[in-house]
Design a protein around this nucleic acid. Sequence first.
DNA 1: AAAGTTGGTATCCATCAGGTACCTGGGTAC
DNA 2: GTACCCAGGTACCTGATGGATACCAACTTT
Lengths: 137, 137
Amino acid sequence: MDTNFPDLRQFGGAEAFLRVCKPRVVLEMFTSKWTALVMGALLDGPRRFSELRRALDGITQKMLSQTLRTLERDGLVTRTVFPTVPPRVDYELTALGRSATGILEAIGAWAGEHADAVIAARTTYDARAAEPPRPVT
Amino acid sequence: MDTNFPDLRQFGGAEAFLRVCKPRVVLEMFTSKWTALVMGALLDGPRRFSELRRALDGITQKMLSQTLRTLERDGLVTRTVFPTVPPRVDYELTALGRSATGILEAIGAWAGEHADAVIAARTTYDARAAEPPRPVT
DNA sequence: AAAGTTGGTATCCATCAGGTACCTGGGTAC
DNA sequence: GTACCCAGGTACCTGATGGATACCAACTTT
């Protein structure tokens, strides 16, 4: 089965390839700790900052605003400021953002089917690694 | 649209929730720099260590063996040692591992459709951020 | 005897994500 | 006066990730 794994030398090595690889860009959108959770909390519709902060019980202000800033920069979330008093800021998934949650659903679906197998494999592996070393007969 | 975002307080906060969240376990399988690339290089069939090292032009021995060790622990890859000389070690995707590449394909598919939009959004956002600050009329 | 091949491990170091703590600043409630 | 709400910003600290380098144990080749 000849799948088309690229010849990385043509890109100047793996490092250079990773910098131009679009799936990698997408993958990195979700690698940060809070991204998926914040997007999940926005699925039901727009939310304001303090609502999110409560929904994501335990997130710090810094990480919430940092995560939202990144999502906004990537075009996944809009930020709307109402110049009322007290100030109010709404965050809402864009169409792009909603479509991106499809990836999270795919991960969730696979996790539903296979996460237990992964966890079991880890347990087995760790148990084997902890065994007393073989006597060198 | 009432999607079922969990009440994190019931888990003792987001931090505690993340520790038991299976999609999170799966997500973290792919967060490390080389995982996806190594799995991609194994799609065509079993490969030995030095073949992978050449295919992943630029990866260090340490990172390759570390990544493979993690994949083996998660049950995605098997490691077969041939006690020949010089030593030979084959790595091969398990059925679980092959099914996990489906996630990478989903990411790749979404990237094909939307990565440009994300990149464009970033450019726009960065340009706006670099604008001279508004005069406070 | 020296050097190469294979598949590693050990050690040190730089970078960075994430967390803590404290700041702003206008307005309201006590 | 004091304290707290909102929506953040900023400085500093730490632990994990990953990279560079050196070393290793066979055994073969030159």
